[in-house]
Each structure stands twice: as structure tokens, then as C-alpha cells.
Lab assay of single mutants.
Amino acid sequence: HNLTITQGKLFFHYNPKLCLSEIHKMEEVSGTKGRQERNDIALKTNGDQASCENELLKFSYIRTSFDKILLRWEPYWPPDFRDLLGFMLFYKEAPYQNVTEFDGQDACGSNSWTVVDIDPPLRSNDPKSQNHPGWLMRGLKPWTQYAIFVKTLVTFSDERRTYGAKSDIIYVQTDATNPSVPLDPISVSNSSSQIILKWKPPSDPNGNITHYLVFWERQAEDSELFELDYCLKGLKLPSRTWSPPFESEDSQKHNQSEYEDSAGECCSCPKTDSQILKELEESSFRKTFEDYLHNVVFVPRKTSSGTGAEDPRPSRKRRSLGDVGNVTVAVPTVAAFPNTSSTSVPTSPEEHRPFEKVVNKESLVISGLRHFTGYRIELQACNQDTPEERCSVAAYVSARTMPEAKADDIVGPVTHEIFENNVVHLMWQEPKEPNGLIVLYEVSYRRYGDEELHLCVSRKHFALERGCRLRGLSPGNYSVRIRATSLAGNGSWTEPTYFYVTDYLDVPSNIA
């Protein structure tokens, strides 16, 4: 807008934040220059609390790290170098490059900038070799853009010569660093050979998330399962459950009422301010606690030095998902009996873990797994792929695949051998790939016309006998059925096997 004052003059007093240069501009645009008398524009009460600059400061050096910015700028000295009290560095987070010096300023003089007072450097006698002032900004957020400017702080001049310097606002972004852990990993099994893994992005990506790394490792069953005799009275049979499938998407929606109208769909109840505040506090606490764990609990591995020492970490090797089922080394339970199943799973520490690289999504279907087997899954978020990966501390989750139908069934015939004193040795093959492992066998036998009897055969007993022995049988026709019990439950009964026990007292003698 054009402003013209045809008559009258300007009068400025007691404006401590208004620089004289701005008042002189007002004289020019209003056409009143030359009308004012000496005392109409006070030299001592206008701009006496402001830094009124008329020179431009330029930054000469900028260096960044993930949490620091090192700045240096060209030296500046007023005509009387004693008038320079120091520099004021202003900075704040700036997602967009549209910041002005006066953003967030209120009537009390406060604003949204963080201000650092910096002492002037030592003055050199040689004007050509003056030290460049600077400042190291610490405690910054990774991968965050900051708006920065600097200006001088000078003393009051009796001659009211307006001098000083100020830089333009520059924008500097800190470097990326390792992201925080992925949030809320959930693993479920939808079949006997697959596990579905879902997660949420890290709360602090500290860069642009480029991919996720998912490692999985087959877990050995508890050692007590191999040692305890679950045929003993009072000892509860062990059981394991597989990871249940995901709930429906509708039930997972946030901010939804727990109660549904019987007449149909209901609208979600909005969260109160107290609920939102509580969630923010919980989120802040979780982030602080995660940072504490990362800094205190997890110790970084030592990389190899120039002395030739090897990095103890196993090298990563990509495998196809079809090879995942046989990740671990199978060892027989008892070496003397080769027909026992290889369900003991000690994992070799030198073995390469299978892994998958996930790009542009937060889910993965891990296939080719062994049925009813526990897996430990390790999830890392990465925001750099080359020249070397920059990934987060791992988040861990466990899951067990679903049982395989008929995996616990005894394959092959049940054979028998009759000894003296009416002892019958029953023999059968253990299931080759049971659900988890076989903890015991149930032997059901009966003599024709009598009630059915049951015998429990422990895992250890089966390994020693290759089956079991029935003792003290009365003469007669017998039928026997056997079924295995694994961590997933009972298998199917075998087809009945028949044998006849004679009275050993009636056996004919070869003595003449």
C-alpha cells in the first residue's frame, strides 16, 4: 500500500525493539523526510534493546553428524571492536523451508527459537588472519532439518551509529543413524509349514526405512522333555500350542467401542483428552525405555581390526524358502538304536541362519518350516543398504507352526516275539517326523474274553527296548493296539495285532 503524509511529521519514542533503520525507511515511504526535528525521533529510546544489523554474515563451514552440527561463519568486528559482546545463534526444527525470524513471537518477546549466546573469538592483530567464530550444536535429532541463523550482539553506541551483522536463515539436516526397533511384532501360524509375521514401523526411523531383515531359527525343545518319565503317576503330560491366527481386521481397528449394538453396526467412541494424553505418555515412556535398553543392555560386537582377528559373527547367506525346513542338525536320541526319531534339535552355532529381506511392506510369510516346531524370529529395521547396512537392534518374537495331521501315527506293522515265561516283546517304529517329539506310547492289549488293559511306555523305555515287553501273560489269544502321544496330543491307534500265548508248562520236552 502507498502511504503519503502531505502535512505533519513523524514522532517515535520509547520503541526499544524498533531499529532506527526501520524508522528511516518509514520517513522515505511516507514522504516526511526532512520535516522531523532532532528530538522527534529519539536516538536513545528507539532500538536500544534490539540488534540492528546492516551487514550480512556468511557461514564459512558446515559439518553434520547424526546428532551434531558444527558451524563456522566469517569474522565480524565493528569499528570499535570492544562493542562486540558476542553472537546469538538461533535454531529450531523446520520440516519445511518457510521459516521466518519472527515465527511464534508474542507480545512478551518470546519466540519459538532456541538461542545460544556465543563469546567472540580472540581478536588477531592481523586483519587478514582473524579467527572464524563458530559453535557445535549438540543433542539434535537424527535425520531432522533445522533452520539456523546467527547475528551479532553489540553494545549501545553513544554516537548512535547503527552497526551489526546478521546471516540469512539456512537449512541444515542432520545425518541418518540406526533406527529404533520395529514396533509390535506379531507372529502367527496359518499352516503346519508357515508363519505369518506382521509389525509396525519404528517410532524413530532416523532416516528413510529402506528394508527390513527377518531372521528365523528353529528352537530346540526343553531338555526336561527328553529326561522326564511322563508315565509316572502324578506327572502331567506336557503340551505345546501353536500360535493362533490373526483376529479379523475389524476387531483390530483402534479407537473402536468394545460393545456392539445388537441391531447392527455401531460407531466408534472418540477417545477423551485424558485417554489420548495417557497414550502419549505411555508411548514416550516406551521410547525412553527402549533407548535405555539399547544403550545399557546391548553391547556392540567388536569388529575385526587390522591384526587379522576374525569377526566372530557368522556370515549372512541367503537361502531359498524351500530350504528352511531342514535348518537344524538332527541327532538321534540314543545312538545305539537307529530307529528312534531325530527330534532332539541342538543347533550348531556355526550354522548360517536363513533370512529374508523385506522391502516396502511390514509383513512376511515364512514358508518351508517344520510342522509343530518353535521358531525364534528376529526382526531388524534398516535405513541404508549400501555401502553397508545400517540397521536397528533386533526385536524378537516366537511362534510355533501348526501340527501336521497323521504325523504322530505309527507307520509300519507292530511285530512281536514270544519268549519263555510268557513274555512277549512288542516292537514298532517311532514316527519319523512327529509333531514336536514323542513323549510316550500307549499300549492297549486284551486277552479274548477279558477286559482291555493299558500300559504306558516312556520315551526312554522305548529307546532301550525298541518297544516294550509284556510279562506274566496268561495263555490265550491276544490283540494289541499302540498309539503315540506327542507334544500336540495323541496320534491314531494302530491296526490290531494278534498273537497267541501258550502255557509254557505244557511245552513238550526233548528229553527222552
Results as ranks from 00 to 15, higher is better:
residue 206 N to Y: 03
residue 207 G to T: 03
residue 208 N to G: 11
residue 208 N to E: 09
residue 211 H to C: 01
residue 213 L to Q: 13
residue 214 V to S: 03
residue 215 F to Y: 10
residue 216 W to V: 12
residue 219 Q to H: 07
residue 220 A to T: 14
residue 221 E to Q: 07
residue 225 L to K: 05
residue 225 L to Q: 10
residue 226 F to W: 03
residue 228 L to C: 13
residue 228 L to Y: 14
residue 229 D to Y: 14
residue 229 D to R: 03
residue 232 L to M: 09
residue 236 K to L: 11
residue 237 L to P: 07
residue 239 S to N: 06
residue 240 R to I: 10
residue 243 S to N: 12
residue 243 S to T: 07
residue 244 P to L: 11
residue 245 P to I: 14
residue 245 P to A: 06
residue 245 P to N: 05
residue 246 F to H: 13
residue 247 E to A: 10
residue 248 S to F: 15
residue 249 E to A: 13
residue 250 D to I: 15
residue 252 Q to V: 10
residue 254 H to L: 13
residue 256 Q to A: 15
residue 258 E to F: 14
residue 261 D to S: 12
residue 263 A to K: 02
residue 266 C to F: 08
residue 267 C to K: 09
residue 267 C to V: 12
residue 268 S to M: 12
residue 269 C to L: 09
residue 271 K to D: 07
residue 271 K to C: 14
residue 272 T to V: 10
residue 275 Q to A: 12
residue 280 L to S: 05
residue 281 E to L: 11
residue 282 E to Q: 15
residue 283 S to L: 08
residue 284 S to M: 15
residue 286 R to W: 07
residue 289 F to E: 07
residue 290 E to V: 05
residue 290 E to R: 11
residue 292 Y to V: 10
residue 295 N to T: 08
residue 297 V to L: 08
residue 300 P to V: 04
residue 302 K to Y: 11
residue 302 K to V: 06
residue 304 S to L: 10
residue 304 S to G: 12
residue 306 G to P: 14
residue 308 G to E: 08
residue 308 G to V: 15
residue 311 D to F: 15
residue 312 P to V: 14
residue 312 P to F: 10
residue 313 R to D: 03
residue 313 R to M: 02
residue 313 R to P: 14
residue 314 P to F: 14
residue 316 R to G: 04
residue 316 R to A: 12
residue 318 R to L: 13
residue 318 R to N: 09
residue 319 R to N: 10
residue 320 S to W: 06
residue 321 L to Q: 15
residue 321 L to R: 09
residue 322 G to S: 08
residue 323 D to V: 06
residue 325 G to V: 13
residue 327 V to A: 11
residue 327 V to Y: 08
residue 329 V to G: 13
residue 331 V to P: 15
residue 332 P to Q: 13
residue 336 A to V: 06
residue 336 A to W: 06
residue 339 N to K: 10
residue 340 T to F: 13
residue 340 T to H: 04
residue 342 S to A: 14
residue 344 S to W: 13
residue 345 V to G: 06
residue 347 T to K: 08
residue 353 R to T: 04
residue 354 P to H: 12
residue 357 K to H: 03
residue 359 V to L: 09
residue 359 V to C: 13
residue 361 K to P: 09
residue 362 E to A: 10
residue 363 S to Y: 08
residue 363 S to M: 03
residue 365 V to A: 14
residue 368 G to K: 05
residue 369 L to D: 01
residue 369 L to H: 01
residue 371 H to I: 10
residue 372 F to D: 04
residue 373 T to A: 05
residue 375 Y to Q: 02
residue 376 R to D: 15
residue 377 I to Y: 08
residue 379 L to F: 07
residue 379 L to H: 00
residue 383 N to L: 08
residue 385 D to I: 12
residue 385 D to Y: 08
residue 386 T to W: 14
residue 388 E to I: 11
residue 389 E to N: 12
residue 391 C to R: 01
residue 393 V to T: 13
residue 394 A to R: 06
residue 395 A to K: 14
residue 395 A to G: 14
residue 398 S to H: 12
residue 398 S to K: 09
residue 399 A to L: 12
residue 400 R to E: 09
residue 401 T to G: 00
residue 402 M to Y: 15
residue 402 M to N: 05
residue 403 P to A: 07
residue 404 E to T: 05
residue 404 E to S: 07
residue 406 K to Y: 05
residue 408 D to W: 00
residue 408 D to E: 01
residue 412 G to N: 15
residue 414 V to L: 08
residue 416 H to K: 05
residue 418 I to H: 04
residue 420 E to R: 14
residue 420 E to W: 04
residue 422 N to E: 14
residue 422 N to F: 04
residue 427 M to D: 03
residue 427 M to W: 06
residue 429 Q to T: 04
residue 429 Q to K: 10
residue 432 K to F: 09
residue 433 E to C: 13
residue 434 P to I: 04
residue 437 L to Q: 12
residue 437 L to D: 14
residue 438 I to A: 04
residue 439 V to Y: 15
residue 440 L to D: 05
residue 440 L to Q: 15
residue 440 L to A: 10
residue 441 Y to T: 02
residue 441 Y to G: 00
residue 442 E to R: 07
residue 442 E to L: 12
residue 444 S to P: 00
residue 445 Y to H: 09
residue 445 Y to F: 05
residue 445 Y to S: 04
residue 449 G to T: 12
residue 449 G to H: 01
residue 451 E to L: 12
residue 454 H to A: 04
residue 455 L to R: 08
residue 455 L to Q: 08
residue 456 C to M: 02
residue 459 R to C: 15
residue 460 K to M: 11
residue 463 A to Q: 09
residue 464 L to N: 15
residue 465 E to A: 09
residue 466 R to W: 03
residue 471 R to K: 12
residue 474 S to W: 09
residue 475 P to G: 10
residue 475 P to A: 10
residue 475 P to V: 08
residue 476 G to M: 00
residue 476 G to D: 00
residue 476 G to N: 01
residue 477 N to Q: 04
residue 478 Y to V: 01
residue 479 S to W: 06
residue 480 V to A: 05
residue 481 R to E: 04
residue 482 I to V: 14
residue 484 A to S: 04
residue 485 T to M: 08
residue 486 S to V: 01
residue 487 L to I: 06
residue 489 G to Y: 11
residue 494 T to A: 03
residue 497 T to V: 09
residue 499 F to Q: 00
residue 500 Y to E: 02
residue 501 V to G: 00
residue 502 T to A: 14
residue 503 D to M: 07
residue 505 L to V: 08
residue 506 D to I: 11
residue 506 D to N: 15
residue 509 S to C: 03
residue 509 S to T: 13
residue 510 N to I: 13
